[in-house]
Structure formats: C-alpha cells, structure tokens
C-alpha cells in the first residue's frame, strides 16, 4: 500500500540578500524547486519561493518581503527551473528581478497593460 505521508508545510521568512544562498542550500539538501509567486499586499511585494522534497513530500516556502523598488537577485543561477516564474513576477507585478538566465524582458505574456497585478495596475483599477 502506498502509504500517505505526513509532510511539513512551512513558511520561512528570509532576507532578500540570502535568497540565492538559501535556495542553493535547499537544492543541495535534496529539495526541488516547485514554484515561485509574488503578491502585492499593503504596498509591499511578498515573494514566495517554494521548494519540495520528493523523498518525504516536505514543502518549504521561502518568504521574502520587499519594497516595490528593491532589486532581487535571480535564483536562476542555481535553480534553472525558475526562469518562467521570475519572468512572470517581473511582467505581472513589476518585481525588479535582475540577472534572469533567460530574460524575456516583459515579453513572456506580451500583455498590453504594464504590471496589471502590481502597484501601477492596482491604481488604474
């Protein structure tokens, strides 16, 4: 019988500078990149980078809270799978992510409105 597993599902708040190094640590510890997403809440960006471990199905979410003009260093140098997620955050929210391995430069979805889910989009709506 495939036992169902009990798994951790945690959020770990970290500083923006330690994002890349923490991601690298997790990858070395056997974690796999699951997803990344942004949220624009109370004039700040909340970035969530989720890593799962498929041996025991643990889920660890790295949480970075930043001001809208803070630059974030891309984790694609250590996690190639994050390419689309970071491009998406940049395009839909306007999160300033630098050094993405494959930078679509706002041409991932090619939408007309700039950063519809970010600060400028919210003002218009």
């Amino acid at each position: 019988m495939a036992d169902t597993v009990t798994f951790k599902n945690e959020i770990e708040e970290i500083a923006v500078d330690s994002l890349v190094s923490r991601a690298e640590e997790l990858i070395k510890a056997g974690y796999r990149f699951s997803q990344a997403c942004a949220a624009y809440i109370d004039d700040k960006f909340e970035l969530s980078y989720s890593f799962s471990n498929y041996d025991n199905y643990d889920l660890l979410n790295l949480r970075v809270v930043i001001d809208t003009d803070t630059e974030v260093k891309s984790i694609t140098t250590v996690v190639p799978a994050a390419v689309f997620y970071e491009n998406e955050m940049h395009e839909l929210f306007g999160v300033k992510i630098v050094d993405i391995a494959l930078d679509y430069k706002d041409k991932l979805y090619r939408i007309k409105q700039e950063c519809p889910l970010g600060p400028s989009g919210k003002e218009e709506a």
């Binding site: 041409k107 991932l108 939408i111 889910l117």
Partner: peptide, 12 residues
Amino acid sequence: PSIGFVHRGLES
C-alpha cells in the same frame, strides 16, 4: 518557447 496566446489574467 513563447507563450501568452491564451493569457487572460484570471488571477486578477
């Protein structure tokens, strides 16, 4: 790849 032909913006 280039995607975005079906992007609707459902999350908004």
